[in-house]
Computed example of a mutant assay.
Amino acid sequence: MEIPNKLRHEQIQYLEFLSADLERAKDFYHTAFGWTFTDYGPQYTAFEGDFVDGGFTGGTPRPGSILVILYSDNLEETKKRVVRAGGIIIKDIFSFPGGRRFQFTDPDGYELAVWSM
Rank of each mutant, 00 (worst) to 15 (best):
F56A: 00
W35E: 04
T60F: 03
G59V: 05
E48C: 07
F51G: 13
G55M: 06
F56Y: 12
E48R: 13
T45N: 03
F37Q: 04
P63D: 12
G41T: 01
T38K: 14
D53W: 09
G49I: 09
T45D: 05
P42Y: 02
Y44I: 06
F51R: 10
D39R: 11
W35M: 14
T57Q: 14
D50I: 08
Y40L: 10
R62G: 02
G59N: 02
T60L: 03
A46Q: 12
T45W: 01
P63V: 02
G54T: 06
G49F: 11
D39N: 10
P63S: 08
T45L: 02
E48G: 14
T60E: 13
D50W: 06
T45Y: 03
T57I: 15
F47E: 09
P61K: 00
R62I: 03
G58C: 09
F47W: 14
G59S: 03
F37G: 04
G49S: 11
V52N: 15
D50S: 09
G49M: 11
G59Q: 07
T57R: 15
Q43R: 09
D50G: 14
P61L: 00
T36P: 03
Q43A: 08
E48P: 05
R62F: 14
F56W: 05
G59Y: 04
G54N: 08
Y40R: 13
R62D: 00
G54M: 05
P42T: 01
G64F: 03
P61R: 00
E48A: 11
R62H: 15
D39V: 01
D53K: 07
G58P: 05
F37C: 06
G54R: 08
T60Y: 01
Y44R: 09
T38C: 02
G58W: 11
P63F: 02
P61W: 03
A46F: 03
F51E: 13
P42R: 06
F47C: 11
W35T: 01
P63R: 08
P61A: 07
G59D: 02
G49W: 10
G41A: 10
G49H: 12
G64E: 07
A46M: 13
F47T: 09
T57A: 09
W35D: 04
T38H: 11
R62P: 05
P61T: 04
G58S: 15
D50E: 10
F37E: 00
Y40E: 09
T36A: 12
G34A: 01
G49Q: 12
G49A: 06
F37I: 01
T36L: 05
T36Q: 14
W35A: 15
T45V: 14
G41F: 07
G34R: 06
P42E: 08
F51Y: 13
W35G: 06
F56E: 01
T38N: 13
G54D: 03
E48T: 09
G58I: 11
F51V: 10
G41S: 10
F37T: 07
T57N: 10
F47Q: 05
F47D: 00
F47A: 11
W35F: 15
G49P: 11
F56M: 07
F47P: 08
F47L: 08
G54Q: 11
Q43G: 10
V52R: 06
P61H: 07
P42W: 01
D50A: 13
D53N: 11
T57Y: 15
Y44L: 13
G59H: 07
F37R: 06
D39Q: 14
G55Q: 04
T60C: 01
Y40W: 15
D39E: 15
T36I: 02
D39I: 08
T38D: 12
V52G: 12
V52S: 13
T60G: 04
